[in-house]
Structure formats: structure tokens, C-alpha cells
Amino acid sequence: MSNLSNSLKASKRSIEQSRLSTLGRAFVAGGYTMYPVLLILGIIGAIVAPRFATTVNFINILEQVSVLGLTTIGLTFVVLIGRLDLSLEGIVGFAPMLAAVTLVPAAAGGIGIELPAWTGLFVALGTAGLIGFFNGFMVVRVGLNPFISTLGLLVLLRGGVLIISNGRSIYSPGKALTYLGSEKLLGLPVSVLLFVLIAVVVGLLFKHHRYGRALYAIGGNEEAARAAGINVDRAIWSAFVIAALLAGLAGVFLTGRLDSAVTTQGQGIIFSAFAAAVIGGVSLGGGRGTIVGVVSGVLLIGIINNLLTLAQVPSFYVQASTGAVIVIAAVLTTLASNRSSGVRTRT
């Protein structure tokens, strides 16, 4: 009798356990791993820095991370298919700079074309799109390894910024270029609204659109995707274009926030973007990752930076601490995803 009830209890426990582990797996696969950490970080922040837990500060954080956020979402497109794109950093600097020098008069540092003011955004995004198209061409058609082709382009764009701007930053390049990064709508910065909107749209795209499904399939097994009839080359090519467009938009946000196109704009952002993606559970090998996770990675980096500043940590320490946190967070994410990714059976 007791034997029976014991075994019943045991089986109930094992069902509960398996339900829990299913839940845990969904939690990790959905990209929610970092959210408890963010919550804890928020609580600590509220305690150590009274100014942390205020609406103004939260909006400030969101505004700060929107640039990194867009770049990281762009990067995720390329990483999902098992590639990478270092040139995104170059685009963040180059695209708005090219728009700026074509807008302002030569006296203000322009190259003397003085295009009509409304073209600003189009020039910036058009440039970004063309660079992405070139990246896709190099990878798909020429067959270059994206590491080296986009590294080359990154260096080239960095130099390009200096050439077109003559090494000088351009101030007040005009409303068309700065509106998105400086104005508010319904009390919220336009850049924040746009970042949230793009995150939601891309999140849905990854999850429910055939294009997103194709990206995951290509990242998981390119040959299988090809055999299934997916146009792999087109998907890869377009991923590079979308990534570049998002990086271009990120650059426009940054220019708007600073009300100037700065020659050093975007420097180092690609490292933060990779860190945010990996923290968010995006696999650098491709095929794994969600926008929910990417946003958590971006927020983590943003909140840490904000907290360290608020806590008046000397600025020299901020960078090193951020690096340390990135390593710890990456370890956490990797452990969690290894734990939950389940068994590998063999026959």
C-alpha cells in the first residue's frame, strides 16, 4: 500500500520535474535568461543610486541604448545565418557623415554639393543599404569569408569618414538628419519609440515570418535549407542589407542626439553589439537567438553603464567593469543554454 503511494508520489514528482524542465527550456530558448539578472541589477541600482529608479533615468537609458540596440538587431540578422559583419561599426559613422557633408555648405565643412535638406535621411540610409549590398555581394557572389571582407570595409569606412569630412566633425547638419535622434513624441524620444517598434517588428519577423524561419534554417544547416528549396543566397544577401540599414539608422540616431556628425562616431560599438548579442543568447555559430534575448543583452550593457556613472565610479573603471560584466553574463548565458539544450542520443 505504502509502496504504491510512494511510487505514485515518485511518478508525480517526475512529471512535475519534467514540466519544470520543459518550462526552463522554453525560458532559455525564448531568450529570457537575462531578465532575472536585469531585475536584480535594477533592485541593486535603486538601492545604491537613488536617481536610478526614476522615469527620467529609464528613458535616458533607453535613449542611450537605442543606437547599440539597432546595431545589435542588425548584427543578429547576419549572425543568425552563421556569418558576421564588422563593417556595421563603420556604417554607424560613415552613413550619417556622408549625408552631413552633402547637406551643409562648404564653409561649414561640407563638400559643396548642398543637397536639399529633406534628402538627409535618404542619403544616410541609401549609403548604408549600398554598403550592405556590397557586403552581400562579396560573401555570396565572390565567396569571401565575411570576417575578412567586412573587416576590410570597416577600416575603409573609417578612413572614408576622415576623407569626406576632412577630419572635422560637422555641427548641426540639419533637421532631416537630426530629427529622429533629438525630437520627442508623446513625451518619449522618437529614437526610443522607433527602437521599440523595430524590435517588435523584427521579433515577429524572426518568429512568424517565412523569412525568419529561413534565417534559422540556414544558420542551423545551410545545405538542408538549400535542399528544402529555400533561396539561401538571396536570404544571406538580404540579411547583410538589412543589417547595414539598421546600422545606418543607428548612426542617424547618434548624429541626432549629438546634433553633429562626429568623426569618431560609433567607434567600438561593434564589440558591444557582439557582447549584447551573445549575452542575449545568440549563438555565434548561427541558428540560435531571439530578439527578446538581444534586447536583454542591450539593456544589460546600458544599465551597467548607467549605474556605474550614477554610482560615480571613476570613468577609467567604467570600461573595465563593463568588460568584466560582459564575460560573466556570457558565461551565465552559455551555461544556461548548455544545460537546457537537452540530450544528444545516438543510434
Partner: peptide, 11 residues
């Protein structure tokens, strides 16, 4: 080239 191992049956 047959299946994508990390994805589920449905996908």
C-alpha cells in the same frame, strides 16, 4: 543536408 538538428520537427 537532410535536417536542421537544432530545430524542432515542426520547423
Amino acid at each position: 543536408s537532410g535536417y536542421v538538428g537544432i530545430l524542432g520537427v515542426r520547423e
